[in-house]
Amino acid sequence: MAEVVTKGTGKVERTADRAEVQVNFETSGATRTEAVDLLTRRVASVEPLLTRPGVEVRSRQLNVHDNWNGRRRSGSRASQSYTLRVDALDQLDDLLGALVAAEPTWLNGPSWQLAADTEAVREAQKEAVLDARRRAEGYAEALGARLGTLLRLADGDSEMWAAESMRAMAAYGGAPGAPPQMDQLNLEAQQITVTVRCTATWSLLD
């Protein structure tokens, strides 16, 4: 029995409904204890921001180490890094503005995500199968045959990506001066493209 194998691609766009932000604070002192004490005071104003509704701390990591100038110890440094998940996007501008006002060492984000992708993936799967069928029908017609039944279907790699996942805030590194104005950065939720690929094998009929 003759067969034809085709690949199909389905793409669906959805508006992001979740954002992720990474922020880091660093301090230095003559000793590790001093560096940690300074860091504790520095993040004291940050911690209340992380208890806002719709904000989840996905990770909180502390790092303390000595600085060295050759073989000579030259003070100590302490840092605290946060990875934040923001589901209340209407609060994102205010949160980022407050974080920047706290003068982080660096802040990356937002990166845009979908809270749930099941519906979008299923729609993309349907589009991928239809695309594979259209291609198979074209080959069958070119051969003067008829497209038969689907014999095998293999799932390809699925992926999600945001058209502009990292916005202007990604470059903020705690430089001196006034913090950027949030209303000037256009931090609107971006479109997420869900892509599904498949490989289908069809029978060909005379």
Rank of each mutant, 00 (worst) to 15 (best):
L99R: 00
G97I: 01
D66S: 05
R77C: 02
P104G: 06
D90S: 13
R60V: 02
R85H: 00
N108M: 09
Q91G: 15
W106N: 14
A88K: 14
G75E: 01
L107H: 08
R77Q: 10
P104M: 00
H65Y: 10
S81T: 15
L92Y: 04
A98I: 04
D90F: 12
R60G: 05
R71F: 07
T105N: 11
L107V: 02
A102E: 06
V86F: 08
T83Q: 07
E103H: 14
L99K: 03
S76V: 00
L62D: 15
Y82K: 05
P110M: 05
N108Q: 05
L89E: 13
T83C: 00
A88D: 15
T105I: 03
D94K: 09
R73Y: 06
S81H: 13
D66P: 00
A98N: 07
Q91E: 15
G75L: 01
S74Y: 08
T105R: 13
P110E: 04
A98Y: 10
A78Q: 09
Q113G: 08
D94I: 03
S111I: 00
T83S: 03
L92N: 10
S81D: 11
E103Q: 15
A102W: 01
N63I: 11
L62Q: 15
R72K: 14
R85W: 05
D93T: 12
A98G: 02
L99D: 08
L84P: 02
L95T: 05
W106T: 09
W112E: 03
D93I: 06
L84A: 00
T83I: 01
G97N: 10
R77A: 09
P104F: 08
L89M: 14
L96R: 00
D66H: 02
P110N: 02
L95N: 07
G97Q: 01
N63P: 07
D93H: 12
G109Q: 06
A102C: 01
R73D: 04
N69Q: 13
A115W: 13
R85C: 04
R85M: 03
Q91R: 15
A101K: 09
R73K: 12
W112V: 11
R71S: 14
N108F: 03
N108K: 15
S79N: 10
D90Y: 10
Y82Q: 05
L92S: 08
N67K: 04
A115S: 14
L62Y: 13
W68Y: 14
L92D: 08
N63R: 15
V100L: 11
Q113F: 13
D90R: 12
L89N: 09
P104I: 05
Q61P: 02
L92W: 10
A98C: 04
Q61E: 15
D94E: 14
N69D: 12
W106C: 07
